Simulated scan of single mutants.
Amino acid sequence: MGLTVENVGRPARSSPRGAATRSALLRAAAQVFRTVGFAKAGVNEVVTEAGASVGSLYHHFSGKADLFYALYEEFQQRQQDRTRRAAVEARDAGETDPTRLMNAAARAYLEGCIAERETAWLFFRGDSPPGFESALRARLREWTDRNVALFRRAAQPVDDALLMVVSGAMLVAVGEVVARDDLADARRLADGVIAVLARLEAPAVTGPGAAG
């Protein structure tokens, strides 16, 4: 089985020194990937940037692809935290409409990409390990699926067509937003995407399962 987002090595329990080394290697990898790209990056460049040894890198990671996936996992966890907070805050403010709650989460996701656009751009510029783009699409679909399932009433089925449209729109939108050099332009585009998503509604449920 190849390396994927799902089977990338999670940080094992380690000493504070080991955890610090792992963090330094990830910061260094991000810097090297931004500077020369994933394809041209070498393990030696990463360890030099981190002030670590090749042995320490292979103690924590299986190679540069593992570093890339670990960076994505950490970014995605921060994004998940952002979207969860946005949904909770919207609910606490009295919002109950599931579509608006989903859009609050989508806005938080896009704003997180803007706030970390140098990191986010690593994952959307097309210079990545083999198979990563498929994993990226799958993870964004999972994110959409979780949020729609969370925000809709338990008795109301999640509509597959809506999931497909939202996940596809978000995948394209994130790539375009993080590619914008101008921050104001990126925010305008994100606002426009959310405005479009706000007009989407799931098809009415018909047939035996529909409410009478």
Score class of each variant (00 low, 15 high):
130 P>D: 14
109 Y>N: 06
154 A>D: 11
59 H>D: 00
26 L>K: 08
65 A>K: 05
9 G>L: 04
103 N>V: 11
173 A>H: 05
194 I>D: 01
7 N>W: 07
201 E>D: 10
112 G>F: 01
118 E>V: 06
187 R>T: 11
177 V>A: 06
94 G>W: 07
212 G>T: 11
65 A>W: 08
145 D>L: 10
88 V>T: 09
105 A>E: 10
14 S>L: 11
58 Y>M: 09
70 A>V: 01
109 Y>K: 04
137 R>H: 13
44 N>V: 08
181 D>A: 12
172 V>I: 08
64 K>F: 06
98 P>F: 03
55 G>V: 08
98 P>L: 13
72 Y>I: 02
40 K>I: 00
53 S>T: 15
178 V>I: 03
146 R>S: 02
178 V>C: 01
93 A>Q: 10
171 L>E: 04
26 L>P: 00
64 K>M: 12
136 L>W: 07
180 R>K: 12
68 F>Q: 05
62 S>E: 15
155 A>Q: 14
74 E>Q: 08
38 F>E: 03
14 S>M: 12
114 I>T: 02
82 R>E: 15
112 G>V: 02
28 A>R: 03
31 Q>R: 14
64 K>C: 09
53 S>L: 00
161 A>M: 13
205 V>P: 02
48 T>M: 03
28 A>S: 12
16 P>N: 13
101 L>G: 13
135 A>Y: 04
18 G>R: 05
205 V>E: 13
35 T>A: 15
50 A>E: 02
147 N>E: 03
205 V>A: 15
125 R>F: 04
123 F>M: 06
60 H>I: 06
207 G>R: 12
4 T>R: 13
150 L>M: 10
145 D>R: 12
37 G>M: 04
144 T>R: 07
205 V>Y: 04
16 P>Y: 06
16 P>A: 14
171 L>Y: 15
159 D>A: 11
37 G>S: 10
1 M>K: 14
123 F>W: 09
199 R>Y: 05
85 R>K: 11
73 E>F: 00
108 A>V: 03
193 V>D: 01
119 T>L: 14
189 L>W: 03
2 G>E: 11
125 R>N: 09
204 A>G: 02
21 T>V: 13
74 E>Y: 01
133 E>Q: 15
16 P>L: 13
86 A>H: 02
147 N>A: 04
156 Q>C: 13
179 A>S: 14
156 Q>M: 15
30 A>W: 00
83 T>C: 07
151 F>G: 05
80 Q>P: 00
53 S>W: 00
19 A>S: 15
91 R>L: 03
142 E>S: 12
201 E>M: 09
109 Y>S: 11
47 V>L: 12
116 E>P: 01
197 L>R: 01
107 R>C: 01
165 V>F: 08
145 D>A: 09
